[in-house]
Nucleic acid binder design. Structure first.
Lengths: 194, 194
DNA sequence: TCACACATGTAACACGTTACATGATTTG
DNA sequence: CAAATCATGTAACGTGTTACATGTGTGA
């Protein structure tokens, strides 16, 4: 039941409609939780029913009306209680790594393509996260920020995201190097592959 | 539908029963995919029905009989086809990071505990992965191994796992440092927290 | 005028988790 | 003698994905 807590945590940044929340999940929340718009709409309904959020309709000119959700006191308590629970170990599920595990019997070229794509994607995300970081810091340096800021949570999760993407960049670069050398070796002396 | 491909990839290491496969998923496969025994039993059934695996009963003295599954030619083809598909971007879902995002309104001490626990867990995993690496290398150095080995897939995924855990160690150490300083500052001058 | 952004949803299905059930054997 | 390991499963439920459906307004 952590989707609900991810939603609650995302709403600490301020009230949002389903659509706006989905955007938030695509950008900053993506560091720690991902969900499709459909999941979010479903979860918002339930959270409202359970009294953890309150929704109100905002009428808009030239736009469809939207329902904007805010944390209730009960919602904040629920989130507090959640942070007091021990965290469960994270499950890794990575499509690309499955392909890599099978690369030797698989389509070598396609896997290298996929690793390249991941590398580009990670570069993009890192650039985005660096921008988000600049926005948070507002010109201060890290130490200053960490001393002064009201909230450090968003910074710490952003830090995790940045490290993760940097790691991905290093790893996929190394993998491309290795697969490239192997491909070259196989073309000249394919002895060990029948 | 990547669980099935994770299972197929895991069986590249050799035939296994449901129970043995679950063990494998706890150790080496944990780097790239996780699944509960129940999922595995269910998936093995389906994979056999679809002709991607063949199972046979191995009778044992002093032990319940077991059903051991092997990749069929169709299974290998399926896996090959899977590697040729572009990989979908990975969804991060990390309980601990949700707690961290909410740390400022949450239970500070409990979150620090949880980060410590993650740190210890990552140290444990890294030690395990280092042992697995030694087993793979069999005394050779990395370059030698990468030139000679028939399969590099398992090494590359293991490399990803090791980097991931090292990263986790660095990150959680930094987080503990920051939260510790904040806690100290709040005790002496809690000005900015009402 | 065509694609994209805004805005919300339904339905069906696939995948993942948790709890329970069973029973022998080996190890501490 | 208790706990862990070997070995397989069912049932119920919770979470996540995919496809579809609808309609307006804005910018290239």
């Amino acid at each position: 039941m952590a989707l609900r807590h991810a939603v609650l945590a995302a709403l600490l940044e301020g009230e949002a409609s389903g659509y706006q929340l989905a955007k938030r999940f695509d950008v900053s929340v993506a560091n720690f939780w991902s969900a499709t718009p459909q999941q979010l709409y479903r979860e918002l309904e339930q959270l409202e029913r359970d009294g953890l959020l309150s929704g109100r309709v905002v009428e808009q000119r030239r736009r469809p009306n939207k329902r904007v959700f805010t944390l209730t006191a009960a919602g904040r308590e629920e989130l507090h209680a959640f942070t007091a629970q021990p965290a469960r170990p994270t499950a890794i599920r990575d499509d690309l790594l499955v392909k890599l595990q099978a690369v030797d019997t698989g389509d070598q070229g396609a896997v290298r393509e996929a690793v390249s794509a991941r590398l580009e994607q990670s570069r993009g995300k890192l650039a985005l996260y660096d921008r988000l970081r600049d926005d948070l810091l507002e010109g201060r340096d890290e130490d200053e920020y960490l001393r002064e800021a009201e909230r450090v949570g968003p910074y710490l999760t952003l830090m995790a995201g940045r490290m993760y993407e940097r790691e991905n960049i290093r790893w996929s670069t190394a993998v491309l190097e290795i697969l490239g050398q192997r491909a070259a070796a196989t073309r000249t002396a394919p002895a060990h592959r029948p």
